[in-house]
Amino acid sequence: MFEFCEDPSALETARWFACYLTNGVHFRFYQSFLTVLLLLAITAPVALVFGFAGAMASRSHVAPLRWIGKTYTAMVRGVPDIAFFLFFVIALDQALEWLAHQAACPDWTDPIRQGANFIVCDAAKIPQSNAPQWVHEAYNFSIAVFTFAIVFGAFAANVLFGAMRAVPRAQLETGEAYGMTRRQTFWRILVPQMWIYALPGLSNLWMILIKATPLLFLLGVEDIVYWARELGGSRTSQYQYPHPDWRLWYFLGLLVFYLGMTRISEILLGRLTRRLSRGQATMAGEDQRKAVA
């Protein structure tokens, strides 16, 4: 990075740290922060969509749809995250490869399961085994997003389901009195008003999602906790920058990062609560109305 980094062992402390903190492996550490933020940015809306679909299905008048919605929320919420992550990801990966295998290699005669091995033909490998490393990483990342979205979608579905029932019945009756159809009442009256009831539950989920990101490493994505442990471990002079066990400092850095994320989230969620309370038949909405009047 800097020109004076040629021989780290000869540097005084400040320069040594300037070089140490900008070496290649630290850039991979910094990149992993972006990975985590990207995961949050993609997963949160996708999980919300899953949750919304789940909640809609759960209150559907069509019985099979309702069963699907109820089963989804009950099952996924009941399984421990770590078990779900280990089981579901392997199962999903193998299911995709099995489907690709059926399509790509119909002439294959060997069994796919041979003891512990899961063997499909090379054309059915997802991603292709000769694909560049970034394709493998992107694939792992998308699987991670999908899995996180399913898990957190189930919790969101329950939160939204409750929020939909919390909207005062009188509001919906008014809509019906104006001759709106069921669908119109749902989209024009129920959905715009339910968010304020859903927000406390959803904000909990968001906080839990932030904390759950270290599960990424289970899915083969190198996240910030992995790198903190890796970089903090003691280094012999085999490395350019030998140092004793510094894991404490790296984990302290993570602590600051997570607390910072929490603080930013609180501020934004506070603003969102004020915005959504506007004109609502809730105590916060009533206070706002009085303040203006």
């Binding site: 070496n23 290649g24 492996v25 991979r28 890796e230 085999q238 490395y239 350019q240 920058y241």
Partner: peptide, 19 residues
Amino acid sequence: RMGTEGAYPPYNFINDDGE
């Protein structure tokens, strides 16, 4: 694809350039 641990110097480790 060669799978390794990257945490067992001098057998295999991640060097300062992240490789």
